[in-house]
Design a protein around this nucleic acid. Structure first.
Lengths: 202, 202
DNA sequence: CGTCGCATTGATATCGCTCAAATCCGGTGG
DNA sequence: CCACCGGATTTGAGCGATATCAATGCGACG
């Protein structure tokens, strides 16, 4: 039952939303919504991963965003009548769906919620801009170092390589072969270190 | 005097902010704020460009974001006590500074403003993700066509080339030489047309 | 009239992409 | 327990598109 998920809820989830989410599960490659569907909800990923994407005319899929555990997605849909991209689970996932109408109502009536929601959007915007700046870099090594500087934790700018290196390659807009070679060269040059499933500077 | 800038204010600027901004000018390479400074304001670029950056240990500057005319920056600072990056003018710039305290107050007390602010952030997030999708494309021609499809108006997907082509090149993550060649080839192949200062399909 | 920045085109170099192959590893089923 | 399989990882070779460097023309502006 839904209450069992309360333990998994992220700390930054606005209090007003804690009882509003309807839990849904999605198998790998299952569709959460499709481009053009009427907007009904905003989502929070509890487990798994959902990718937002569009399909080019040649059939190739272009990812706009990947939302992992603890992340919202489709927040920007609040002002739109229809979704403008597809949401597909990259892994078996459990989500919380928050009715868009309720959220609009809260924004209008609950100042505290509005502040929390603004903070949430600002965080996402910040992350998107960092990624944008990263993709504008021309060399693979620059992108890796930019990633460490913006997403790394602690003095060593360490990041956990949670999935496969191929996933990181997608995040950086590189082929996995290029990323392997770049990581090998950076490590050989003493710029980064890989240990266990962590990557850091020095 | 500050009132003279009212004509330049973007249409999407929430009404509550129109009298709140303090205009400041910044020379090229002038600092707007530094990492660690207490957060005092959120900014809107009227003219010029401001880059948000950090400095790596080796002294190299890593850009997190560049904000151009009509764009806000440091909106995410509303929730933080101190700025977490540097803001430096890449060109001589004029900005509007909105006191962070006032904005927090408005968010708490003015539901209409809160909704407008949320809509503003959502629009920016949407635009950022569209650009992300574009930068993930590998070929210059694909990026140009994606730009026309997403930002173009009307059946011909026409866009006005407001600034220099160099500016568009930067937006697309290309050198201006590559963009010139790509546009020439696309036009020669009958895919796009350039007339006056407009670019469109067919 | 000189200077400056944008526009345009040419020549060359470079870096990442593509195709290819070998190895490793975990899981699965016999 | 072992054979097998699929996916991730890693390295190699070559190509091609874009970056880079360079040169010229052009218009604006002082």
């Amino acid at each position: 039952m839904a209450r069992a998920t309360l333990a998994n809820l992220p700390a930054y989830l606005p209090a007003a939303l804690r009882t509003l989410g309807r839990q849904i599960t999605c198998p790998k490659d299952g569709w959460v919504f499709r481009k053009g569907d009427p907007v009904q909800a905003v989502f929070l990923v509890l487990n798994g991963e959902v990718r937002l994407s569009r399909f080019a005319k040649d059939g190739s899929e272009i990812a706009l965003h990947r939302a992992g555990g603890g992340e919202f997605f489709a927040e920007a849909a609040l002002n739109a009548p229809r979704y403008h991209c597809n949401a597909i689970a990259s892994q078996p996932s459990t989500l919380l769906a928050f009715p868009a109408g309720k959220i609009r109502e809260l924004l209008a009536k609950d100042p505290e919620f509005a502040q929390q929601w603004v903070a949430l959007l600002a965080r996402q915007l910040h992350a998107a801009r960092a990624r944008l700046e990263r993709l504008a870099l021309k060399s693979a090594a620059e992108r890796v170092l930019h990633y460490l500087h913006t997403d790394g934790k602690g003095p060593r700018c360490e990041v956990a390589l949670v999935g496969s290196v191929k996933d990181l390659a997608r995040e950086l807009g590189l082929t996995h072969e290029s990323l392997y070679r770049t990581l090998a060269r950076l490590e050989q040059d003493g710029v980064v270190v890989r240990r266990d499933h962590r990557l850091g500077l020095v």
